[in-house]
Amino acid sequence: MKVFISADIEGTAGITVWDEARKGHAAYEEFREYMTDELVAACEGAKAAGAKEVLVKDAHSTGRNLILSKLPAYVTIVRDWSGHPDMMMFGIDDSFSAALYTGYHNKAGTDTNPLAHTLTGTVSRLLINGEVASEYTLNALCAARYGVPSVFLSGDAGMCAEAKLLVPRIGTVATSEGFGPATRSLTPKASVAAIRAGVEEALSRDLKSCLPKLADSFELVVEYTNPHEAYRVSWYPGVEHPAPRTLRFRASDFFEIQRAIRFIV
């Protein structure tokens, strides 16, 4: 069994303010360690469930956050950004048995995580076929393009609930819950234990039941916080600009949606 893990940070247990997620700030070093510990717990759970290979994509900000010396020897890691439209899922292919997500956060405009956003701060809403999408939505559909089921996610409670709307049988661990700018969170030790156990359990079930069905066609709508951003990227081929802050793009292949997002978001 081969397992792919996409690791973010804003859904890590305890994280509450942006300085804790941004390289160069004093608080970042502490939460970088917690991000790494949660990722390692997922790797250990995968190995206990029978995984022979684990590929990790460091999927936050610079793509260079995880503390490499803490990673098990059986793990390989993708760091930084290649420019490929798979973005946070770069490295996945149809040889993987399952995709996992650690440290994930809810979508822009939600109040379940003080750091909720979708890809960048310039996006107020991103919709796929009329449904407001999170980064997880995009990434689970990316995995589905390769026939890879999304079987586990850890992150804020709102994100866990959202994940189950797309993949009802996905295993989740809620690391925290947002209350305006505040959070109520598991301790790092409790989060690590829950993630390890949750991943092992998720990978021991019927994986195919966690494969979302791809639609026959897709409509991407991006609503920006600033009309200047929408105008600047409205020149991407095939993009419509129906309102000052809104762009629309349609395609039959989800990869074309990913490619558009890569250049307009």
Rank of each mutant, 00 (worst) to 15 (best):
I67G: 01
L68W: 04
L68T: 06
L68M: 01
S69L: 03
K70R: 05
K70L: 05
K70N: 01
L71V: 01
L71F: 04
P72C: 04
P72S: 03
A73Q: 10
Y74Q: 07
V75D: 03
I77K: 04
V78E: 04
V78C: 03
W81D: 00
W81C: 02
W81R: 04
S82R: 11
G83W: 10
G83M: 06
G83S: 10
H84M: 06
H84D: 12
H84S: 03
P85W: 11
P85V: 15
D86L: 13
M87Y: 07
M87C: 10
M87S: 12
M88D: 08
M88Y: 07
M88N: 12
F90M: 12
F90T: 14
D93Q: 13
D93Y: 10
D93C: 10
D93S: 12
D93L: 12
D93T: 15
S95F: 09
S97G: 14
S97H: 10
A98N: 09
A98F: 07
A98I: 06
A99W: 08
A99C: 12
A99S: 13
A99V: 13
L100P: 00
L100H: 00
L100M: 08
Y101I: 11
Y101D: 00
Y101A: 06
G103P: 09
Y104I: 13
Y104Q: 08
K107S: 05
A108H: 15
A108Q: 11
G109Y: 13
T110I: 15
T110W: 11
T112W: 14
N113D: 03
P114W: 15
P114A: 15
P114V: 05
P114D: 12
L115S: 11
A116D: 12
H117V: 10
T118P: 02
T118V: 01
L119H: 15
L119F: 15
T120G: 02
T120Q: 06
G121E: 11
G121K: 11
T122Q: 11
T122G: 13
T122C: 07
V123T: 01
S124G: 03
S124L: 13
R125N: 07
R125T: 08
L127F: 09
L127N: 02
I128L: 09
I128G: 02
N129F: 07
N129C: 04
N129D: 04
E131Q: 10
E131I: 09
E131F: 00
E131N: 06
V132T: 05
V132Q: 08
A133E: 08
A133R: 02
S134K: 07
E135M: 00
E135G: 15
E135S: 10
Y136L: 08
L138P: 07
L138I: 14
A140L: 09
A140P: 11
L141Y: 02
L141I: 14
A144P: 05
A144L: 14
A144R: 08
R145S: 10
R145F: 14
